[in-house]
Nucleic acid binder design. Structure first.
Lengths: 243, 243
DNA sequence: CGGCCCGTTGATAAAACTCAAACGACGTGG
DNA sequence: CCACGTCGTTTGAGTTTTATCAACGGGCCG
C-alpha cells in the first residue's frame, strides 16, 4: 500500500522510482534514500563530477539533471561513453584505492546525492547490483551501436534507449521526453560529426519517425521504430521482467 | 618467498599470475585457485560459453585460450564487445536471476574453471573487484576506439591493449605475443570490414610498426607506437600501480 | 587431388567528414 | 529599445574514409 509522497506514479523522486523498480527495496531503505535525496547537492552545468585518473569518490546517484561520462583524447576529440540520467548511480563498483576510468561532466544542472550504504536497508544491495548490471548492458549496447550501426540506426537506437531508461525513472510522456542534449553532444555520443547528426535527424524527421524540437523529443511510434532497427529492450534479470 | 610451482615468472597458470598481480592473494586463496584450475574443463573452439539472454551461470575464469563476448544483430552483422584472454573472469558481477547480456564464444580451444567463492581466501574479493574494474575500463576504451579512432588507430590501440593485458597474465614475449585472431575477428572487434583491416595492416606493416605473421604479432616499438596514438596504459587503482 | 579457410588485390560505390558560411533564438550591454 | 555576440542549428560543395563486390592465391587437411 503506497504511502503519500512515495507513490510510484509521479510524485516520487526519479531515483526512488528507479531503484524501487529495480529491486524490492524495503521501507527503511526507502527512508534512507529519501533522506539522502533531501541532502543532495547541486552541481552547475559543465562542472566535473569526476575526473579521469582522479579519485573515484564515494558512491553517488544522480537525483535530477543529466550528466555524461566521457573520454577526452589528446587532440581534442572526445567520446561520450555513457549518459547519466536521473536515478543513475555513480561509482557503485569500487575497489581499493579506486580511480575513475572516465571524466563525468554535468550536462544540465545536476543534483547529486550520496548513496546510502547497501546495508542500510533490505533490498538496497539488490537494487544497486541490478542498476550496475543495467549500466553494463548499456555499455555493451553502446559498443554494438558504434561498431555496427549506421548513423541513422545509431540515432534511433539511442533515442529509444533514452526513452526506455527515462521511462524506468518515471520521466517520460507517452510519446516522448525532455531532451537537454545538443546535436553536438549526440554526435560525441554516437561517434559522428554534428553536421552528420543534423542531416540524419532531418531524414528521420522527414520520414515521420522522430520529431526533435530543441528541448524535446517525440517518438511517433516507438514500437515500430524499435522493430525497424532490430532493437529489443534491455533485460538483465528474470526477477524483474520489465528490466 | 615463492614456492615451487607457484612462481610468478613462467610456470604459474595465467589465471594465478594475473590475480596475484591484481591483489594480495593469500596462500589459501592461491590454493583454492590452483585446485579450481586442475578441475577446469575444456571447451572446443566455436562453442558457446554463454548465450545472450540465457542464464549467466556461475562465476568462471578463462584458464587458457581466447574467447569473445559478442553481440549478434538480426541481419547477420556482429560486433565483438570484448575479448576474454587467459586469466580473465566471466560473470563475476552477478545479481539475482542474472541473464547474460552477451554471447560468449570460444575462439580457440579454451579451458574454463569455476571460480572459488570470494570468501575462500583473503584477497580474492579484492582481486575479483580489480579484475572487474579493469574489464570495465577496457569496455570504455573499446567505446572510445570505435567512436573516435581511425581504422589505423583502432588496430594499433587494440594490439597494444592485447600486449598489455597478456603481459599482465605473463603471456607476452618482450616484443610480441601469440595471436589466434583472424583478420575477420579483428574486424568484428573494431567495427570494420575484413578487407579494410587487411589494408590498414599492410600500411602499418610497411611503416614498420607492426609485424603480423599469422599466429603471431610483433610490436616493433610499443612505447613509440603508444605515444603516436596517444595511448596510456589502463590504470584502475593506486594500490597496484602497474594496473 | 580437391575443398576450404584465410589472406590478398582491384575496381567501384556509399557513408561520413571537412570546411565554410548563414540563420534564428536568446541574452547582454549600451 | 536596439545593437551585438554567442550558441545551436542548418545548408552547400568537395574530399576522405570505409564498405561492397568479386576474384585470386596459398596453405592445410581430408
Amino acid at each position: 500500500m503506497p504511502r503519500p509522497g512515495l507513490s510510484d506514479s509521479a510524485t516520487g523522486s526519479p531515483l526512488l522510482t528507479r531503484l524501487r523498480r529495480l529491486g524490492a527495496v524495503s521501507v527503511e531503505a526507502q527512508g534512507a534514500l529519501a533522506a539522502a535525496i533531501t541532502l543532495s547537492v547541486p552541481v552547475a552545468a559543465r562542472r566535473d563530477l569526476a575526473t579521469e585518473g582522479g579519485e573515484l569518490g564515494p558512491p553517488r546517484a544522480i537525483v535530477s539533471g543529466w550528466a555524461a561520462r566521457m573520454r577526452l583524447l589528446a587532440d581534442g576529440r572526445r567520446q561520450i561513453v555513457s549518459l547519466l540520467l536521473p536515478g543513475d548511480l555513480i561509482g557503485v563498483r569500487r575497489q581499493v584505492s579506486a580511480i575513475s576510468p572516465s571524466t563525468v561532466i554535468a550536462i544540465t544542472e545536476v543534483a547529486v546525492a550520496l548513496l546510502p550504504h547497501a546495508c542500510s536497508g533490505a533490498g538496497l544491495a539488490d537494487a544497486y547490483a541490478m542498476s550496475s548490471a543495467l549500466e553494463e548492458a548499456h555499455l555493451l549496447a553502446q559498443i554494438a551501436r558504434l561498431g555496427r550501426f549506421t548513423a541513422q540506426e545509431r540515432i534511433a537506437d539511442m533515442l529509444l534507449e533514452l526513452f526506455e531508461r527515462l521511462g524506468l525513472a518515471g520521466l517520460t510522456d507517452p510519446d516522448g521526453f525532455a531532451m537537454p542534449l545538443t546535436q553536438e553532444m549526440v554526435a560525441d555520443s554516437l561517434g559522428l560529426t554534428p553536421v552528420h547528426v543534423n542531416r540524419m535527424l532531418q531524414v528521420a524527421r522527414r520520414s515521420g519517425e522522430i520529431v526533435w524540437r530543441p528541448g524535446r523529443v517525440t517518438l511517433v511510434d516507438p514500437a515500430t521504430l524499435a522493430q525497424k532497427i532490430g532493437r529489443s529492450p534491455v533485460v538483465v534479470s528474470r526477477a524483474f521482467p520489465r528490466y
